[in-house]
Amino acid sequence: MSVSEPEKAAPLSTEIADKDISLTFAKGMEVLEAFESAATPLTIPDLARLTGINRSVTRRLILTLVRLGYLTEAHRAYAPTPRVLRLASGYLKGRQFGRTVQPVMAAYSRQLGDAISLAVRDGSDAIYVAYSPGDPALITSGFGIGSRLPLTATAIGRALLAFSEEAIIDELLAAPLPSFTPATKTDPAALRTDLCETRSRGYARVTGEYEPGVTSVAVPVLGTDRIAKAALGIVGPEARFEENSVCTQKATTLKECAETLASFL
């Protein structure tokens, strides 16, 4: 399945004064994040174009990342090394993903017969932080840990958004909304209606808005304040989810999984 280029992450928090920020470090992170959607190694001109950073500055940042072991170079093109996974290890270890989250997801994945993904909100995207495969004969999302999906065009994104603070929803819907297929909802009013329906029934259901012919179903992992800390989602061919009863049944099982995970996240 195709992977659409993700939207840019949210800007740095305005709560921190500019004088307290290292702009060089911020640019280095921009360069590193540019590899996120790259299927092939990138050259310095590629990275300068993607980040909008001066080419000579980009070169110095790239060479620094090579020296630190986060990038490798071959034929004047650069690619991430496994060392970049260290950046996520603290987050995953701190929440004991391997010891608690993953076994719970695996149990419910077997029960559903579907691959289950766990995502958290990062700016205008949902980012996968855990994944449990289901029946290999069935269609899967084609995404793995670290993949980003838009909040507005996917069920796992809408489950996160529908149970977010109203200010976050207002800010996101005030910006131009990306379109991925002819079915993608880009009208803010239509999306608000969908988010209200998601809150009312307790789960999100999206068909063909991110990829044609694909339906996704997702539920929030709620905190004590009823705000989503994360979301659990499954995907499959549209024909498998045509019956409302099927979606409701799968969403009920996902909610059980979400309630189990809530204390770990």
Rank of each mutant, 00 (worst) to 15 (best):
T81R: 02
R199H: 12
N244L: 15
A74T: 13
A17E: 15
D170M: 09
Q249E: 13
P82H: 04
L161A: 06
M29A: 06
F264S: 15
S216W: 08
R49P: 06
E259Y: 06
R59D: 12
P6G: 10
G69M: 04
S109Y: 01
T64F: 08
I139L: 15
E30P: 01
P188H: 01
V129C: 05
T253V: 13
A159T: 10
S147Y: 01
T51G: 03
S200G: 07
A88M: 03
S141T: 12
K19Y: 14
T51A: 02
R158S: 03
S263F: 07
L71W: 00
E242N: 06
R226Q: 08
Y91S: 05
L172Y: 00
E242M: 09
G90Y: 10
G213E: 09
S13L: 03
E166D: 14
A38K: 05
L195E: 04
L173K: 00
R148G: 00
V235Y: 12
E243H: 15
Q249H: 15
R60S: 03
S200E: 10
C196H: 07
S4V: 09
T152P: 11
G236W: 13
C247R: 14
S141W: 08
M105R: 04
S4G: 04
L23Q: 07
A174P: 05
S132H: 02
E73M: 00
L149T: 11
A34Y: 10
R99Y: 11
D125W: 07
A258V: 13
R201Q: 13
R95C: 07
V214N: 00
I156T: 03
T207M: 01
A204I: 13
A258N: 04
S216D: 09
P176C: 14
L160E: 09
P45K: 11
